[in-house]
Design a protein around this nucleic acid. Sequence first.
DNA 1: AAGACTACCAACCGCACGCTT
DNA 2: AAAGCGTGCGGTTGGTAGTCT
Length: 280
Amino acid sequence: MGRSPCCEKAHTNKGAWTKEEDQRLINYIRAHGEGCWRSLPKAAGLQRCGKSCRLRWINYLRPDLKRGNFTEEEDELIIKLHSLLGNKWSVIAGRLPGRTDNEIKNYWNTHIKRKLISRGIDPQTHRPLNAAAISTTTSAVNTTISTTATKNISMDFRNNIDQKPNIIIATSSSYDETKCNSGTTEETKPLEIVPQKSSQVMINLELSIGLPLHTDHISSAESTASYNFLAAAASPPQMVAPPAAEMVGKTVCLCWQIGFQSGGQCRGNCKNTSGFYRYC
DNA sequence: AAGACTACCAACCGCACGCTT
DNA sequence: AAAGCGTGCGGTTGGTAGTCT
């Protein structure tokens, strides 16, 4: 399908924004709110493309933006989220209040990439640089597992946050509590990260892939991959072990379900009986 | 002091998606 | 069903400030 240009290029300014332009944009949005970016420039008296206005507002002028350097905690959270989500900057930004996708993307490219490389970690795969060749084999195995049987796959980062996670495959069928509604990308809950006693943070991301064949239990065609990891920057490496009881109760769970989207909203039953939260 | 180099980040660009007509 | 529109996303670029030689 054809598309018209987003704006008339002939009479639009480009490049850095002036203070006056900023003020005009702020004033307009304060008075009329966000939205309708296409018509905003004209209404606000700006000779700018609507996209440019939107970007300027989102990345720079929004009042809830947190300026300043990233903290060590934010660094580690970005690394963890990137290892799970890849270059989904907007999703990652959604987990970091006051930070924008553009800011995180820039920070990733200029700081974190180098930081990971200096640690001997491949920034793209989050595996040791010398293990890149193995990664494709491993992912192929995981794909086979997740599409043929009901298994719980955990990636445990507690050993060392800088190393590839331990992958734990369990065949337990007591996973009805992991059920999550399909097509639930509309509503997002803030990610809860509860500091642990030992200043650790545990995040549990669940990936569910499958067809909703049964209503009561996860079907045999469904599989669940759980990614458990600790942002344990302050803690020494430790042996892999099941999470302690007090940790389970504070675990945060992100649940991603890939399936047919029905357009329905998340029904909000994302907290299971173990006190886990899911992000649907 | 000045030119070269590097790092940073705001802004741009093209594309994809969802919704409406 | 197809076309058009509005918006959001991710990759890339270009200007500028800081550092090095």
